[in-house]
Amino acid sequence: MIRNEPAVAVVPQEPPPERVRRQVPGAVLSGGVLLLVLAAWQAVVRVFDVPEVLVPAPTEVLASLVAGLADGSLVEHSWVTLQEILVGFGIAVLAALLCAFLVTQSRVLDKALFPLIVMTQTIPKVAMAPLLVVWFGTELTSKVLTTALIAFFPLLINAILGLRSADPDQIDMLRSFGATRMDVLRRLQIPSALPHIFAGLDVAVVLSVTGAIVAEFVGATAGLGYVIQATNFTLDVSRTFAVLVILSAIGLALHAIVVVCNRKIVFWSAEHRTPTEQA
């Protein structure tokens, strides 16, 4: 199938009249739903006069957010948490790719490590956060390590699966031209792994946000997780919600970066490969 061919050509008869209707873009739809929910929330809080220390109205959250950003306190804490997320995520990516490479290239390492990796999957990694704080203190290090630990495993598993996902017939094809193991790795296994690696990155990037916040809960003097705990203590619930807004913004932004990179780098899988039976 040539890409620009109209999809109608495949349908033999029955012109589908309903399908022709213009579709509302998904972003507009979900944006609308979000606005509706916020409006309903605002109305409920106002109508039933819910106290601010229980559930603040969206407008109060917004006011707190703007105030916090204006006086720089939320900006500072966000920066602390963002650093933890990015450094921890970066370490997780490098470590996971390196381990995946070793496990897939060496039969001995594979046999020795893969069962252990699968077993450690079952340990809740957040449970390690208090230990890491004891070992590494309440500064950046313990947060970065908790974040890295949580993001590491989904990345590792996906990278291993990805590096193993190369079609054996494709490997034969390359070998028939005299490809060495290095050629096969570089020209086939790594590109074949990329879609899986990006799936892992997407999971891991969201988990890194969780990791940083959990680590800050356990023991911190700065960061958005610290702010959540502090404002909980002082019953400044509007500020707690404001932090949640910032956290979802960070999560969304990181997710969006992964999605865009995925689309740019793994362009071929977005293209929906044509089945080969078709002549």
């Binding site: 017939d169 094809m173 031209f177 005299g178 020209r187 293209e271």
Partner: peptide
Amino acid sequence: FQQPLLLPWRTVTQNLLISHDIN
């Protein structure tokens, strides 16, 4: 082979050049 086994991330020309890239 029975299947074309082309590498989807390579253009048609780049697919033809795969043995060149190897040898």
